[in-house]
Design a protein around this nucleic acid. Sequence first.
RNA 1: GGGCGGUUAGCUCAGCUGGUUAGAGCGUUGCGUUGACAUCGCAAAGGUCGUUGGUUCGAGUCCAAUACCGCCCACCA
Length: 883
Amino acid sequence: MPDNIFSLPKTYEFKDTESRVYQDWESRGYFKPSNDPSYPDHDPSKKPYVISIPPPNVTGELHLGHAMFVSMEDLMIRYHRMRGIPTLWVPGSDHAGIATQLQVEKHLLRTEEVTREEIGREKFLELTWAWKEKYGDIITNQIRRLGASCDWERQRFTLDNGLSNAVREAFVRLYEKGLIYRGPRLINWSPGLKTAVSDLEVEYSEEQGKLYFFKYLISGSDDYLPVATTRPETILGDTAVAVHPDDERYKAFIGKKALVPILGREIPVIADEYVDMSFGTGSLKITPGHDPNDYAIGEKHNLPIISILDKDAKVTEAGGPYAGQDRLEARKNLWKDMYAAGLVIKEEDYLHTVPRSQRGGEIIEPMISTQWFVTIKPLAEVALEAVKDGRITIIPDHFTKVYYNWMENIEDWCISRQLWWGHRIPIWYCPDGHMTTGREDPSACSHCGNTELEQDPDVLDTWFSSGLWPFSTLGWPENTPDLRYFYPTTMMETGYDILFFWVARMIMMGLEFTGQVPFDTVYLHGLIRDEIGRKMSKTTGNVIDPLTVMDEMGTDALRFTLLVGSTPGKDMNLSLDKVRANRNFANKLWNAGRFVISALQNVPADATNGPNYTTADAWIWARQKQLRRSVENLFQNHQYGEAGRQIYDFFWSEFADWYLEIAKLQIAEGGDRAFYTADVLVSVLDTCLRLLHPFTPFITEELWGRLKSAAVAVSTKIGLQDTIGGNWPEALIIAPWPDPLPEEGWESRAVRDFSKLQDIVRAIRNQRAEKNVKPTVRIHAILSTGNEAFEDLRKDAGVIANLAGLDENAFSLVASLEEKPAGHISLVAGGVEIYLPLADLTDPAEEKARLEKSLAEVENQIARLENLLGSAFAEKAPVNIVA
RNA sequence: GGGCGGUUAGCUCAGCUGGUUAGAGCGUUGCGUUGACAUCGCAAAGGUCGUUGGUUCGAGUCCAAUACCGCCCACCA
């Protein structure tokens, strides 16, 4: 058969379709905002819907986390676009300091066997930019494949000129305001990466270690304080031993001097309530240089700080004989020497938490280092308020508490990183140690005028620039038309795992620099795990590659799975079975569409008489209306998954399973019946495609285009009911959204009538199956309807007969029956008595059981009704429920 | 230590402001391919909704307690 307008290919070729459809959308400019502020006809009063993409790592490769947020945000964008709202989705990528630098370093080492130190900063940055140019498009092209309808002409990169300018402005403003300071503090040092990292970049893992007990000798006596530690090497940096002031055992030692093992340094025994008398030995060694708690105690007691580890985590000169040894090596050697010196008491197995780098996995070393910090409390207070007073809504709600908790206990943010790839800190030092900053690079020291300036070698934390993302991408600090119109943005959709890293910082920085919240809603999705709930990781080997999934089953199937399988804030386990099921759904869509389109060639272009609808027509129309109301309600509440599920169910188990089957009969009747049936078919299919478009954009666009062509070829009067606006739009992506229609009185009646019909058909099918009547065999039946329902059911007798496999010639429908026909089994369904001539095939015992079961059901129902009448139910329950 | 989430069919999970008989996918059983679809259809089996108590005419849904699993934050040597 030729591939004409009424004949679709048997299978949906998603690969060809996806790239063709995407290119078409993009080239026609559908991704651009409909009310662009740079155009003369711009209407500033139309409120836009704006999302800034969570910028992926520029050298990254697509994983399911990307697939998740792209699907979700694209759904939101497409929905609003179809509602006629000017939408903007700003794409871009992040330079991702550490991640990218590591990747390039690894590459250099592998290919040219050089380190970054060997080639120098300038050359290294040059190579990294080249790397970015080469690989930077990979991720954005992969995001395109997912169907992302973002405005690519507004694509940004955190290191591009505009955004670098924004970073400079932000830094200078904070500095001038006194909210940025530099100083030696105890920070988290990553010896492998050789940079400081923020508190958030440290993860704690519970590990089996040892607790080492040893003697702290008291100077000038034979007494000692027993002390326990998990890290003996830090003994080298001890500057005090602390006991609880009320501890009777050790009171006498307070104020005396203790001797650091091996080194023999004298350090004071101090009293501090921080010490827990009941834990360990009850006395605590204090290493302010390498432990956050000890640092705090050290500050309080004015203790000196000794750094015993350098940037490679090797022991410094302060470690005497152990200088130059690695931290673990020193631990072993020191302990051995202490053992020899008789200072060891014992070792015990001990489960403790070890700080590890989120990136490299190596042990993080707390140490004293001079770094840049943001005084965060003033920013946090404002950001806290914005959520508390409802200017920002977090979905799901329970993350609001998590946000509060973090904001209320926030610590200053270490923003300097000892890396090269990133925004270099805009501070210059003169030989006298003065610091100069500025929006332009200074030529002389602002304090002494010295022109010998040297810029701080460090760069800013990647999240410093991402924190500006919602407004820097729109042109800030310039007051651009985009910034004026699109800012504040509407929706921040991202994973809950970066609530603190990113979302919280955008809120703080947005409020600080623009005086406005950067977005009004935060929607947090969950993480994607494998099908048994494990985190996906390369080492476990359970990673599902979205690209492979798309290749095998299509983008729509993957999107639908991610969107419908997820609930806000909850992790989802992804299994390929689910994707497969949704690929089957796409197939179902295609075939149903194929049927509707091919059916169109057999219908007249117009009706000769006014509208005349069947029970099935009224039913599917009513259900379609109900669906639209429900979907709208769910969308308003951000329950996209449930909305998708309902559309899926409606399409498959109502439209395809029932209406399509009946439509075949109605079209075969020809004439007006065929015309009106086609009208309903096309209208309902059209509605479904529109509702599904945000979920599965490709197949719906493709099918809709074909449906439109076929419908238009037949008649201008088919398929243009209600909202749809009177004529076919140019493309589905910009077609009007099926708005909810007000409920009308006839709807519930139509649904009830049809479900009666379904009950009857199901009951007969059930008996046929039980009695093993071949599907092709048409059987006789008598339906006794009662007077009331008789006329209604008579209209649908043909439908019942066809769907239930009854012989139309030997099938009788009567209002009442004098006596029960012999040799028939009887059923009751949909308020109708049904007699089927299947008694011969019936085992009496089975039949008895069946009847008893149905009797029990009837009794149950009577009991319920009686209960209803007698109880307070009728009095207290609302009328619509009672009815 | 503080906080949060989960516990529903064999498996993986939905179930919104409490409302008739608790759903889906996969799996299982039986039957079935002359034009929408075997990536399918028809029929079916399968659940004391973790446990206990409470509120209510009515609880998977709300409240309290409890058990188990998971996550986040803090980080007592």
